[in-house]
Nucleic acid binder design. Structure first.
Lengths: 192, 192
DNA sequence: ATTAGTTATTGACCATGGTCATTTTTAAAT
DNA sequence: ATTTAAAAATGACCATGGTCAATAACTAAT
């Protein structure tokens, strides 16, 4: 009996993700087709689904990896001392998450633990983001009547709201940053 | 030149939506297939897409109509005097929106103006909901440092967050209402 | 009634994600 | 080396949403 993953499994996986990344670099996420991925990777279609539950699982992996990279950058930054700094720090992440409507949809779908069976890459990044932001807020000049974690959860809620409105016909004219500023000021530094 | 819609157009539309509603009543939203709808309606497949841009557009219509009905009920209720009352008032809506994972996904996708071209039924209900809640908050015992509309927008952001977490593997054990209570207390009645 | 132009309907066809019985490859045991 | 059982890969096939050129049904003008 063997249960250790064979070397070729890793190689095939790498070929698939590599091919997918190259195609995405050229034509974006939305335009990715499974047929093109397997053709570029030089494997059969069935092989793709032996490695990934479905197309969404690949997207979860790739987009999750991208966000993880951006979170690495985020963690390296100095602790923000104001909502404006906070927003500036999160800007690259927001920009990636809204680079394509399709990407944002995938993120939304996976943000709260993919398909409710097990936690996926994107869901993980949301957890990580929560931790980082909570840590930041703990010692900042913000409200003290609620926990840092609760504050961070609210930041995420408003982040999602702002990005969603970004794709909205009516509100897309208002800048994401400006809108988030209003929300976060009211959430993190209430004057009432 | 004529531009008035023919009577049969309305009739076909009614047949399609009627068939869809019946099928959904029996098997839920997620299980709905276009083929079954057209078969039940007694029309060809192409006819479906002559009436609806895609399957999502039908879902937008049907789910939007359902939410509209719930908003009618909501408007008839007495003005909530606390966050608990507010949450209780919104309960039926939340329950419907989370009745199926698929339904929630459709709602999310359409909440901010469908596909960025024109405002759809679901997006409309979000606008309506915003108005109703803002009106409620205007005279309630809540914070006064921000506008009622801004408060209402926050309520929506937290509402979405709570519903998303409901489908999350990690957090689904915590009750939606309880979680929303924490959020809304912190948002509408900050003590800092 | 006939004609003409517009609108609605049709169904064969396509695009694309996903499945599964079969075959091939691998690695451990003999 | 041979055998053998598990793991991986294959590709024909299916499910389902969506398209479009051709056709039928309507309505208004003559």
């Amino acid at each position: 009996m063997k249960d250790a993953i064979q070397p070729r499994t890793l190689k095939t996986r790498a070929k698939l993700t590599g091919a997918a990344e190259a195609l995405i670099a050229d034509h974006g996420y939305d335009a990715l087709r499974v047929d093109e991925v397997v053709k570029a990777a030089g494997v059969a279609k069935g092989t793709f689904f032996a490695h990934f539950k479905d197309k969404d699982a690949l997207m979860d992996l790739l987009i999750g990896a991208k966000i993880d990279g951006l979170l690495d950058d985020l963690e390296r930054q100095p602790v923000p001392g104001s909502t404006a700094d906070l927003i500036a720090a999160m800007d690259p992440m927001m920009r990636f998450m809204t680079c394509e409507r399709y990407v944002f949809d995938v993120i939304l779908r996976h943000s709260g633990a993919a398909m409710s069976d097990q936690i996926g890459p994107i869901a993980n990044t949301f957890g990580r983001h929560l931790t980082v932001v909570a840590e930041w807020l703990r010692d900042g000049p913000f409200r003290r009547d609620i926990s840092a974690l609760l504050m961070a959860e609210g930041v995420q809620a408003f982040l999602v709201q702002v990005m969603a409105l970004h794709f909205c016909a009516i509100h897309s004219d208002v800048d994401m940053q400006d809108r988030l500023q209003v929300y976060l000021d009211a959430w993190l530094m209430p004057k009432g």
